Computed example of a mutant assay.
Amino acid sequence: MERFIYNNTYAAPQVKYITTEIDPEIEWKIRRILFCRKKGRSCSLKAFVNNVLAAHLEEYADVINQLKP
């Protein structure tokens, strides 16, 4: 929860990002994770996806860097 949902690093970025398409089924699955009836929305879809990707790239940096030419 702290790493992906409550992390506000990407909640209000200073720079505008390029729009990327996400499969609608995946989008709705994520929205169901983020929405709680008692609390409302925990974080934005954009912030959640950025948090997950940032964590993935950090966790697998060694493997990813080996792929660079």
Rank of each mutant, 00 (worst) to 15 (best):
T19N: 15
I30C: 10
Q66Y: 08
I18T: 15
Q66I: 00
I5L: 13
D62S: 14
I22G: 03
A61Y: 06
F4K: 01
R32M: 08
A47V: 06
T9E: 15
R37C: 02
L53N: 02
C36Y: 05
L67N: 01
K16L: 13
F4L: 15
P69C: 01
R41F: 05
C36H: 06
K46S: 02
F48D: 00
K68E: 11
F48C: 06
V63G: 06
Q14H: 12
K29L: 12
D62H: 13
N51I: 00
K16M: 15
N8H: 10
W28D: 09
F35N: 08
K16N: 11
K16S: 15
Y6S: 06
P13C: 08
L67I: 03
E21A: 14
E59M: 12
K38N: 00
E21D: 13
D23Y: 09
A11N: 08
E59C: 07
V63Y: 13
K39Y: 05
T20Q: 02
E2I: 07
Q66T: 07
A11L: 15
I22T: 13
R3Y: 01
Y10Q: 09
S44E: 00
R37E: 10
R31A: 08
K16W: 01
A12S: 14
V52C: 02
R41T: 05
L57P: 04
N50G: 11
H56V: 05
E2A: 12
Q66M: 11
F35Q: 00
S44W: 07
N51T: 08
I26E: 13
G40N: 01
E25G: 14
R32L: 01
R37T: 03
G40A: 05
K68G: 12
M1A: 12
V52G: 03
E25I: 01
P13V: 04
C36F: 01
E21W: 03
R37A: 08
Q66A: 12
I22D: 03
S42D: 09
E2M: 04
D23M: 01
N8V: 04
Y10C: 02
Y60S: 13
R37D: 08
D62F: 07
M1G: 12
F48E: 04
I30Q: 06
K39H: 12
K38D: 05
N7F: 03
P13Y: 13
I5C: 02
T9L: 15
L57T: 07
A12L: 15
I26D: 13
Y17D: 14
L57G: 09
E58H: 06
N7I: 09
R3L: 11
Y10F: 15
A11D: 14
I26A: 15
F48N: 10
L45G: 00
N50C: 02
W28A: 14
N65G: 10
E59F: 04
P24D: 14
A11V: 00
P24Y: 10
N8Y: 03
P69D: 09
R3N: 13
V52W: 01
E2Q: 12
R41H: 07
D23H: 04
R37H: 01
Y60V: 01
I30K: 06
R41V: 03
K16H: 11
R32G: 05
I22F: 12
R31F: 07
R31P: 10
Y6R: 11
E2Y: 05
P69I: 00
R41C: 03
F48V: 06
T19V: 02
K29M: 13
V15F: 10
